[in-house]
Simulated assay, not measured.
Amino acid sequence: MKNILITGCSTGIGFETARVLKEAGYKVYATARKKEDVKRLRAFGFICYKLDVTKQKNITKVLDKILEEDKKLDALFNNAGFGQPGAVEDITVETLRQQFETNLFGMHELTIQTMKIFRKQGYGKLIQHSSILGIIALKFRGAYNSSKYAIEGLYDTLRQELIGSNISLSLINTGPVTSKFRQNSLIKFTENVDIENSFFKTTYKEEVKKRLESTDDSKTPFNLPATSVANVVLEIMNSKKPKPRYYVTKATYILGFAKRVLSTRLLDKLLNRI
């Protein structure tokens, strides 16, 4: 039986991907950062470990447990991450560092430790969760935009370095998908942005907070359920030769096309309306 390690399985995309792959017959190692989420996932019947991707020793421990049980790891889906809202001028270096610790550095640490396993066994599938915001940038999302742009650069490079091996690397550029992403972002926004003393105080209160507080995904253009990403991961797992990149949602296709054909100024005008 082929197996896969998935990070960030507490809710949304991670949870749905774990469920879809388990139902398809794959052995899923679902992970979450909090003990209560691990307990809940185990109650659903998942093999689940507590994993904080910002902790190097924690990553090593989880991988060792998988190898003890299966002697191999067929695939990794790097899904864990969060969004830090706020204008660039309101994001401190420490806040930006926190964004990168999870979205990039944690992902990278898990990737390079997994690569040692893949190189030794001679095969494997790396699946990295990027975003439409790794292709285009939207205002008040600078920290998140930059973390996803960094993922694109780092793993576009790694993919070239894997040519000739039996290790594949696929990036998934996801657009608006139903999850708790906005709710979690609202917590980070409140914690790390000095709203009252910002130049954008009014915009934050009238637009940004209103968007983050919204729980009605039907109002988001082109929004898809979390299973839309899960089905792409399943496609990759079933494929002998996965594609290097997968777009999810029409928004990703539309904005990805706009990035290729519009001038920078025209693209900025378009994106500034979103």
Rank of each mutant, 00 (worst) to 15 (best):
residue 3 N to A: 03
residue 5 L to F: 10
residue 6 I to R: 13
residue 14 G to H: 10
residue 17 T to N: 07
residue 24 A to Y: 07
residue 26 Y to F: 11
residue 30 A to V: 14
residue 30 A to F: 09
residue 40 R to K: 15
residue 43 A to K: 15
residue 46 F to T: 04
residue 48 C to F: 04
residue 51 L to N: 08
residue 52 D to E: 13
residue 55 K to P: 11
residue 61 K to Y: 10
residue 61 K to R: 12
residue 61 K to Q: 07
residue 64 D to L: 03
residue 69 E to D: 12
residue 74 D to Q: 06
residue 75 A to I: 10
residue 78 N to Y: 01
residue 79 N to W: 07
residue 80 A to M: 03
residue 82 F to M: 09
residue 85 P to Q: 06
residue 89 E to T: 09
residue 93 V to D: 15
residue 98 Q to H: 04
residue 98 Q to A: 03
residue 98 Q to T: 05
residue 100 F to R: 12
residue 100 F to W: 13
residue 106 G to E: 01
residue 109 E to I: 00
residue 110 L to M: 13
residue 117 I to N: 03
residue 118 F to P: 03
residue 119 R to H: 11
residue 120 K to D: 14
residue 120 K to P: 05
residue 123 Y to C: 01
residue 123 Y to E: 13
residue 124 G to F: 04
residue 130 S to R: 03
residue 130 S to Q: 08
residue 132 I to F: 11
residue 134 G to Q: 07
residue 135 I to R: 11
residue 138 L to V: 14
residue 141 R to P: 00
residue 141 R to K: 15
residue 143 A to H: 09
residue 145 N to T: 07
residue 150 A to E: 12
residue 150 A to S: 15
residue 151 I to K: 08
residue 153 G to I: 03
residue 153 G to K: 02
residue 153 G to Y: 10
residue 153 G to M: 10
residue 166 N to F: 09
residue 167 I to Q: 01
residue 168 S to Y: 14
residue 169 L to P: 03
residue 175 G to L: 12
residue 186 L to S: 09
residue 186 L to I: 06
residue 187 I to T: 15
residue 188 K to F: 13
residue 190 T to S: 13
residue 194 D to H: 11
residue 200 F to N: 09
residue 201 K to P: 04
residue 204 Y to R: 07
residue 207 E to C: 08
residue 212 L to H: 14
residue 214 S to G: 04
residue 225 P to Y: 08
residue 227 T to P: 07
residue 228 S to V: 11
residue 233 V to E: 13
residue 233 V to W: 12
residue 238 N to C: 08
residue 240 K to N: 13
residue 243 K to F: 00
residue 244 P to R: 11
residue 244 P to W: 02
residue 245 R to V: 14
residue 255 L to W: 05
residue 257 F to T: 11
residue 258 A to E: 05
residue 267 L to W: 15
residue 269 K to Y: 00
residue 269 K to I: 10
